[in-house]
Design a protein around this nucleic acid. Structure first.
Lengths: 138, 138
DNA sequence: GCTGTTGTTGCAAACGACTTGCATTTATCA
DNA sequence: TGATAAATGCAAGTCGTTTGCAACAACAGC
């Protein structure tokens, strides 16, 4: 596990702990953005006792270190996925079964400059999520 | 106030009440998406006593009737703005002061077909919000 | 390896956004 | 004007997330 991720930790004076290793492992073996409670449930099912609060705090640290990105699908909760070398991308989520698929495209590259020109904002981030019906549910 | 909006109400067997008129008025005189508590505070400051719960329920009705659209900026809460004839659009929000500006463009029209082709989802909705720094805060 | 420092954890409790249940009020219509 | 059914207010509950604090455990230095 860990590898370079583990390194980003200690570089920052942070400690490599059992909960952090376990949470990282869960994220590594999942290929869609997970909610905090999904991660916690996964740990529990794997007989790894980690407090829900620790999951929150760990994800917050991961996010600060740029290890995970936070996504939101108008669900009233956040989801997290590992960045680790993956290109910037977006998602689509099914209203029926909740399945989330990656979109390996970001159609916004050209738009950013236009947005900055139009609004005089400095664009730092953007969120783009699609919602629809997957092949099984449509 | 109201006009055609008022009509959408009664058409549906719904009633035009004091809280609903007041909430509609608040939305009409504001030009950015408001959170529920912002709306409630605005009512309270205007000496209009409306329960917070009623604001939630009213916005839910407005949304069902297609009168408002719901936006979210990775804040952990939703915001609402009147649709009333306004074209589909997106927003940009300042990390510093929280100011929200409209973007009168949607660069995704051409992308939707591509997304549907790639994922075989039926795309029903999308959310696209930018986050950055406004001219004053940058 | 032992030990001290200090970052991290677990637990309890708080918080904020949002929802639900229910008795009371009130818009609407005959 | 009165009946009725929708809407409101209030209290309480849910759910996601955060905070306070004492106990714990990495890990650096001995």
């Amino acid at each position: 596990m860990g590898h370079s991720l583990l390194a980003s930790f200690q570089r920052d004076g942070r400690r490599v702990t059992r909960p952090r290793k376990a949470i990282l492992a869960v994220l590594e073996r999942t290929r869609h953005p997970m909610s905090v409670s999904e991660i916690h449930t996964s740990l529990t099912r794997g007989k790894i006792a980690v407090d829900l609060v620790t999951v929150y705090r760990t994800l917050s640290v991961f996010k600060q270190l740029g290890m995970v990105s936070r996504v939101e699908f108008q669900e009233g909760q956040f989801r997290y996925e590992l960045c680790q070398g993956r290109a910037h991308h977006h998602h689509i989520r099914c209203r029926g079964c909740g399945h989330i698929a990656d979109l390996m495209l970001c159609p916004l590259k050209k738009v950013l400059a236009m947005v900055e020109r139009e609004t005089r904002f400095l664009v730092e981030d953007h969120s783009l999520e699609f919602i629809g019906w997957c092949p099984q549910c449509r």
